[in-house]
């Protein structure tokens, strides 16, 4: 792995160049990842909590047309969508967010390759930033990640002092991106950054994901689900702020009798009508079954299918939950028969 030193001033010069070339530069704010218009807005704070909403919508928009149609007497004609291939550079991605695109990639390339997702994902350039702060809801260390994880980043930044960052070049994509700017880079020493990353305060692992995997397999009918099912209010806040939740719904919208578009929208498994069949039957008719699905999907089904946990441990869902349901608390107490989910 290649490590360089770059000063903050030079890093900002690169950012300015990215914007000037007409590419999109994203950076996390308190509420959302936002598009940077002026480089003086960039904060690059290692001690910030994850934003309220993840950057997911830039690679998997909350709503997008997949085709347009026009009907005539005997025919339907379709117009395909061309996604503009603008490069998106995400600067200062939290280590928990950086890996999310890689996790979702499995799903979107499983039985069918989703060109919308893939085109956007290929245009993504992730510059990760070490994280030095956690709160009661963070649990990245429990899901095979850490505040200094380079997983998913193309380039990774570690602040060595106030004005300088150690820049690790992780992937070929990152190498390609940084090569025009090699004049800004100074040779670095891996020992220095290692000293910093080793001393970062990390959240204690709250649960063992393989134990959770086992438990979920054996406790599909556990009475524990009922407790959390009673509490949950069936909104999809948890799914929509999540950086890896990827369920979607297809719906047609018409302009007129003859013209319209087919939209692909976010959907959430906690909604009552998520699994409602046309017949009126609903296999997940009560909230406890829906919550069980959410946990199982994240910690069991996805592991079965792709070998990866569908969770980055950012804690957004718990932090923002209207009734403070904490997914970390639930999975870490699953083996403890004394503790019910709801208490």
């Amino acid at each position: 792995m290649d490590e360089k030193i770059i000063s903050r001033v030079d890093l900002m010069k690169i950012c300015k160049d990215v914007i000037d070339k007409g590419n999109t530069l994203l950076t996390p704010g308190a509420a959302d990842y936002y598009v940077v218009k002026d480089i003086s807005d960039i904060i690059l704070d290692t001690s910030a909590l994850p934003s309220k909403i993840s950057h997911k919508s830039y690679v998997f928009p909350r709503t997008e047309p997949v085709l347009y149609y026009k009907r005539s007497k005997n025919d339907v004609q379709l117009i395909d969508i061309n996604i503009d291939s603008k490069k998106i550079v995400i600067l200062g991605a939290k280590p928990c967010d950086a890996n999310s695109i890689n996790i979702m990639k499995h799903l979107f390339n499983w039985d069918h390759s989703d060109e919308f997702f893939n085109k956007r994902a290929n245009n993504f350039m992730v510059i990760g930033l070490m994280c030095s702060h956690f709160d009661e809801y963070c649990f990245c260390t429990s899901v095979r990640s850490s505040p200094v994880s380079e997983k998913g980043s193309d380039l990774f930044l570690i602040p060595v002092d106030i004005n300088n960052y150690a820049l690790k070049i992780i992937t070929e994509k990152g190498k390609e991106f940084i090569s025009p700017y090699s004049g800004y880079l100074k040779p670095g020493d891996e020992k220095n950054s290692k000293l910093i990353t080793e001393n970062v305060r990390q959240p204690e692992a709250a649960f063992d994901s393989s134990e959770v995997y086992e438990w979920l397999g054996e406790n599909f009918e556990s009475p524990k689900w009922e407790g959390v099912g009673n509490l949950c209010l069936s909104c999809a806040q948890c799914a929509f702020v999540c950086s890896v939740c990827h369920c979607f719904d297809i719906t047609d919208e018409d302009y007129s009798y003859t013209e319209g578009r087919r939209m692909k929208n976010w959907d959430g498994c906690q909604f009552g009508n998520f699994t409602l069949h046309a017949s009126g039957h609903n296999p997940r008719d009560i909230q406890s079954k829906r919550y069980r699905q959410r946990v199982n999907h994240k910690f069991r089904y996805y592991v079965d299918r792709f070998g990866e946990i569908l969770c980055t441990g950012c804690g957004r869902c718990s932090r923002g939950c209207p009734v403070s349901i904490d997914i970390k608390e639930i999975v870490s107490n699953c083996n403890d028969n004394q503790k019910e989910f709801l208490k």
């Binding site: 709503t63 997008e64 047309p65 347009y68 026009k70 009907r71 005539s72 007497k73 025919d75 004609q77 117009i79 302009y255 009798y257 003859t258 013209e259 578009r261 939209m263």
Partner: peptide
């Protein structure tokens, strides 16, 4: 938002389906 100009060759087909 999310509108498209249908190409000219498509624009000819204008009979409303409901009429039929």
């Amino acid at each position: 938002e999310f509108t498209v100009d249908f190409p000219a060759d498509l624009a000819e087909l204008e009979e409303p389906v409901l009429q039929e």
